[in-house]
Amino acid sequence: MQIEVIKGHGSGNDFLIIDEITNDYSFSESDRTKLAQLLCNRNSDLGADGILFVMKSEHSDGRMRVFNADGSEASMCGNGLRLVARYICEMLGVNEAVIETMKANLKISKQKDLYPNIHTYQVEISPVLFNLSALPLNLNKPTLFNERVEELSEDLRFTALAVPNPHLISIVEAEQILGDTQKRLSEYVNSPNELFPDGVNVSFVKSLQPGSIYVRTFERGVGFTNACGTAMSASSLVTCLLGINKLEEVIQVYNNGGKVQCVVHEQEGKYTIDLIGNATYLFKTDVSIDADERTFTSNKKSVFSEQQTYEKLQAQAQQLLEQAMKG
Rank of each mutant, 00 (worst) to 15 (best):
E268L: 06
V287K: 04
A85Y: 04
R65F: 11
A104M: 06
Q318C: 14
L39C: 06
N43Y: 10
D155Q: 14
Y254H: 12
L208M: 13
K112P: 01
V250M: 15
E150A: 15
D290F: 09
A162D: 08
E306Y: 00
N190Q: 10
V123C: 00
A160Y: 06
D49M: 06
K34H: 15
E266C: 03
E219S: 06
Y254N: 14
T101H: 11
I169Q: 01
K246Y: 11
F224M: 02
D155R: 13
F224E: 10
V200A: 14
V5H: 02
G78N: 09
T120A: 00
I213E: 09
P166H: 00
T309R: 03
Q318N: 14
C77V: 06
L92P: 14
C40W: 01
Y310K: 09
Y271D: 08
N105D: 12
E100P: 09
N256C: 10
L241Y: 05
T280M: 04
L144V: 03
A234Q: 12
L282C: 14
Y188P: 00
M91D: 03
P127M: 03
H167I: 03
Q182R: 05
S203P: 08
G62A: 12
M76G: 11
I289Y: 07
A234L: 15
N105Y: 05
K112E: 10
T280L: 07
V205S: 05
I171V: 12
E322N: 15
N255F: 07
L39K: 04
P142I: 08
E90I: 03
Y188F: 14
L161I: 04
E96V: 01
A234E: 11
V94P: 00
K326T: 15
Q316H: 15
V287M: 00
L106C: 04
Q209V: 15
E58Y: 12
D14K: 07
L241T: 03
N140R: 14
N43W: 00
E90P: 07
A231W: 08
F67M: 03
D45V: 08
A69Y: 02
V264A: 02
M55R: 15
E100Q: 13
S28W: 12
K326S: 15
L137P: 11
V264E: 02
Y25N: 09
N105W: 04
V149H: 08
E175N: 09
Y214W: 01
C77H: 08
G258E: 05
N140Q: 09
L16Q: 04
G10Y: 03
C77G: 04
C89F: 00
N68G: 13
V84M: 10
L106H: 02
K259M: 15
Q122I: 00
L208K: 01
Y87K: 05
K300N: 08
L114G: 10
Q267E: 06
L106V: 02
K183V: 10
T143I: 12
L38V: 12
S72V: 12
D45H: 07
V215C: 07
M102F: 02
L137F: 13
I125H: 07
F27D: 13
K259W: 10
N256M: 15
H59G: 11
A174M: 01
D274T: 05
